[in-house]
Amino acid sequence: MPTIVPDTVQGALIVSVIDFFLSFLIISGIGIVLSFFPMLNRLAQFVKAAPPARTAHDTKAAQGSKVVQKHHVDTEAQDNIAAIAAAVFVVMDGAPHRILKIEPSARTSSWSAEGRIAQHGSHHVR
């Protein structure tokens, strides 16, 4: 494929201007395509919202799985409480303390962000 751009400084300028401008245009296009991606989730929800009719056997199986899931969550919660209690014990240097309440942190709170960065930093790839 022959080039149509002259091999001069002016040619270099033309190539640069066209390339820079088109890059902006095309990457903006990619941005626009990406902005439609949340619609995929809505589409998936729409598909999920219309489940096929269940048989009696399916319903029984689903109930069974709920029981298993609840037991799993309970065990997980107990594990979390034990881990949190151990962490508090270490931070307090074993001093007498009482944990009144454990609840999920607000995702934007700064202290949890600090915790995250400390945890990330602790195994930084170098």
Binding site: T8, A12, F20, S28, G31
Partner: peptide, 25 residues
């Protein structure tokens, strides 16, 4: 994917390519 507006920076930070191209010529 989460912040499509920022993809424009992927083009904005490439002025260096063209500065080097013109200077090399």
């Amino acid at each position: 994917i989460a912040n499509p507006r920022l993809v424009i920076l992927g083009a904005g930070a490439h002025l260096g390519i063209f500065v080097a191209l013109i200077l090399a010529k």
